[in-house]
Simulated assay, not measured.
Amino acid sequence: MNEITQALKNKNAFIGFAVAGYPNFEKSAKYIVDMANAGADLIEIGIAFSDPSADGPTIMNADQKVLENGSKTEDVFRLITEIRKDTNVPLVFLTYTNPVFKYGYEKFLSKMKSLDVQGIIMPDMPLEEQEAFINIAQQYGRAFIQLVTLQSGNRLPKIVSHASGFIYVVSSLGITGSRHKLSNEANEIVTRIKELTDIPVAVGFGINTYDQAKLFSSADAIIVGSALVKIIEEHPDDATTYLTEFIQKMKGARNATN
C-alpha cells in the first residue's frame, strides 16, 4: 500500500487502465509497460469478465475478445509476471467478485503479493459484505480500493472507513466510457473525502480530454480507462506512439493544475 501512496503523493498523478490480454497476450504486456514508460504513475489491470456491469461498450468489447481467446485467471497472473520483468510501476487489479471468490480470496491475495500487485478494486462487492475480504487483504498487505459515487451520500463516511490504497471517485452516473461533459460534483465529493481521511483520492469514469483532465484539480489523480482501451482497439498492432502521446498530454494537463 505504501507504493500506492508514494505514486500518488505529488497530487497530479495519472492512473491508466488496460484489459489484461487485450488485444493479445504479447501486445498487452508491451502496452502496459509502454504506459508506465510514458509516465503513468499507477496502472489498473482489468480482468476480463463475462458480465461487466460497470463497463461501457469499449471495455466490454475488449473483455469479450479476451474471453474468446480463452484467457483464464492464471493467464492474467502470467501476464503480470511478464510485465514485472520491465517495470516496477504500482499495479492494481480491477475485477468483479465472482472470479476472485471462485479462485479463493486468500489464494488470490497471496498470488497478488507474490506478483507485487498492490491493490484490488471490486465494484460489485457490497459494503456490508466486505469485512472478511478486507481482513484477508490486510493480512497480505494488499489495498482494497473503495468506490465513491455521486449518490453515496450519507454512506460516504462508512465507505471511507473501509478504504485503503486510494479512493476511487466515480465522476458521473452510469457505466464507463468517454463523455463530452462531466459534472463538477466530483470535486465537491473529493473535498468531503479529504475532510475524513488522508488516503489519496482519484477521479475516474469518462475522462478523455486535456480539458477534462484539468477539471479535477482537487483530486490526487485522474483515472483514464476507456480512452486508452480505444487507442489499443484502433491501433492493435502498434499503439505505443499513440498511448505515449496521449498519456504525456494528460500528464501535462495535470501538471498545469498544480
Score class of each variant (00 low, 15 high):
L127D: 05
P123Y: 01
G153E: 07
V76G: 05
A163K: 11
L79S: 05
Q139G: 07
R142V: 15
S171M: 03
D86H: 14
R78G: 14
K107N: 10
T73P: 07
I159W: 06
G165Y: 01
E129F: 13
I159P: 09
S178M: 14
L91K: 03
S178H: 04
P99S: 09
G165E: 09
E131R: 14
E129I: 12
V170K: 00
M122K: 08
K85G: 11
V89R: 01
T176A: 05
S164R: 06
L94G: 02
S110L: 12
T73M: 15
G165V: 11
V170R: 00
L173Y: 02
V92I: 14
N88Y: 03
L156A: 09
S171Q: 02
N135L: 11
H162R: 10
Q139W: 02
I120G: 02
V76D: 10
R84T: 08
V92F: 01
E82W: 04
I159A: 01
V92M: 07
P99D: 04
P99L: 08
F166D: 03
Q151E: 10
S164G: 05
Q151S: 12
V169M: 02
L147V: 03
N88E: 12
E128F: 05
D86Y: 15
V76M: 11
D75S: 10
L127M: 13
S161H: 07
V100Y: 01
K158Q: 13
V117G: 02
D124E: 08
T73L: 15
Y168V: 04
Y168F: 07
G141F: 09
T97R: 14
G141M: 11
I121K: 01
Q146A: 03
R155H: 13
L156G: 09
D124G: 11
S164W: 11
D75T: 09
L109K: 07
N154K: 14
T149A: 12
S178Y: 01
N154D: 15
F108I: 09
V89C: 07
V170H: 00
S152E: 03
L150W: 07
I175M: 11
N154E: 14
M112H: 03
T81E: 15
A132Y: 13
S71V: 14
Q151M: 06
F77M: 10
R78L: 13
A163N: 10
E129C: 11
F144C: 11
L127V: 08
S71F: 15
K102V: 12
T81I: 12
F166E: 04
V160G: 11
G104W: 02
R84G: 03
P123K: 06
I175V: 13
F108V: 05
G141I: 08
N135M: 09
E129P: 09
E128N: 11
K113W: 02
I120N: 02
H162K: 10
M125R: 12
E82L: 10
A137T: 04
G153M: 11
N135Y: 06
D75W: 02
Q130P: 00
Q130A: 14
V100W: 08
G119N: 14
M112Q: 08
I136P: 03
Q151T: 15
I80C: 06
P157A: 12
S114H: 05
V148D: 05
N98V: 10
Q151N: 12
A137N: 08
N135C: 05
F108P: 03
P90S: 09
L127I: 12
I145D: 08
T81F: 01
S164A: 11
S171W: 00
S110P: 00
K113D: 01
E74V: 09
G104T: 00
K113S: 07
